[in-house]
Write a protein that binds this DNA or RNA. Structure first.
Lengths: 221, 221
DNA sequence: ATATAAAGTTAGATATCACTAACAAAATTA
DNA sequence: TAATTTTGTTAGTGATATCTAACTTTATAT
């Protein structure tokens, strides 16, 4: 049996994994807000349970089993977020904390029912992909808004590490997933962007904000 | 902050409380499946937090705060059960385990939304009363089916400590909350009952089963 | 009224998950 | 390459929540 605490470590490892699928202990420690020695000892215990591959002083890698468990938790989290927004009337800025708790509920039936009620969604309310029952994720072809050039017209498709403060900020600017944006100008000295969308012709967004927004090319049907 | 474990003790104390609102350590221990010494030490710690009144060798009593906390958890549990049955298509025999976990979610908003979506229900799918936001419970005028005399016609209104096995058994007999029953016969030697309801004229139920069923007098409108 | 049974407590052990302090290895920079 | 910084580990501590073994108190029965 995997504890709630262990599940949180696995989820973090899944989210933080870079190209090689590796994560440093320090990175994990900062992400979880747990001190490094605690993380080190947890890595040993997860390695004993065959959920991670761990050699002292080397970065940590999820095993196949660990990856599957992690994907399952992320699936539960994202389905819950989507259910709360679509079926219960919550705002996208209100669901993270609740999903953080509901994701640990041991009942496949519950999440399968959510999945069905939502007609098997591929993305959560923040545009993050939802793993299917087998742990497979359909990564969309997204890049950061901060990487777009002047003149590009793209569609807002995701939000990174969405804190509720940031999401409320987006609400105040009327920026939603699906909004079609054109980059009008990039301020050379601080990277501030001027964007147009809807009826707004010159909305200003900081570079920091643009790094947290994911966009897709428009789909020509 | 009250831990999940502590919440389970409070809930148990609320449910087990007799006339005086007291519960013995042994009774609690058996109910929770936790050994007595563990229960004793938890009672000390809950007393330190002012959630119970506890004197060694005496039964335990919930304080006003403790009672309020307990009622809140029971409210969450029963609202969840009702939501799962009414809004998500689960059977009444499938929801206890899930609610047992969801009840610990820290978010009043979640349960208030359920409450609203269900139009502020007074009872859960097993006929147990749902405390309101202030912890008040509307106890219905119920007695056990085993206490009814021959010839009485009453309405099934609740099920006690509903294990899924027992609920599946009721399903198989087509017994539901609201079913109108007449006691046709009480077998003197073992208390077996013969009941009529729907088109069934002589359904047999053991005394043990009848002790787990709660009934109300018919409401003459 | 004493013996026995039931209920309850104390003491000491264990597992999990967190911490700090001190040290060691690896990476970076001068 | 040597010094410094960053990263990571070890050792030891503490809180929580569980257990068993041994003992005590209260209740029950003969």
């Amino acid at each position: 049996m995997i504890s709630q605490t262990e599940e949180n470590y696995l989820k973090a490892l899944f989210i933080l994994a870079n190209e090689n699928g590796e994560t440093g202990v320090n990175e994990l420690s900062k992400f979880l807000g747990i001190k490094m020695p605690t993380v080190t000892s947890m890595m040993k215990s997860l390695a004993d349970k065959n959920l991670v591959r761990y050699i002292t002083y080397k970065p940590v890698i999820l095993t196949v089993t660990g990856k599957k468990e992690a994907a399952s938790i992320i699936r539960k989290h994202r389905l819950t977020e989507m259910y709360l927004v679509e079926k219960m009337g919550f705002g996208w800025d209100e669901v993270h904390e609740i999903a953080e708790q509901v994701e640990h509920v041991k009942s496949n039936a519950l999440f399968d029912k959510m999945d069905e009620a939502l007609d098997f969604p591929k993305f959560d309310p923040h545009g993050a992909p939802i793993p299917d029952k087998n742990g497979k994720i359909d990564f969309p072809d997204q890049r950061k808004l901060s990487e777009c050039k002047v003149g590009e017209t793209i569609q807002l498709s995701g939000v990174i590490h969405s804190s509720d403060v940031f999401l409320k900020f987006l609400n105040s600017k009327n920026l939603k997933l699906g909004t079609i944006l054109t980059v009008q100008l990039i301020e050379a000295f601080d990277g501030t962007r001027e964007l147009s969308y809807d009826e707004r012709t010159a909305e200003i967004l900081s570079e920091i904000a643009c790094e947290k927004l994911l966009v897709q090319n428009l789909k020509h049907i």
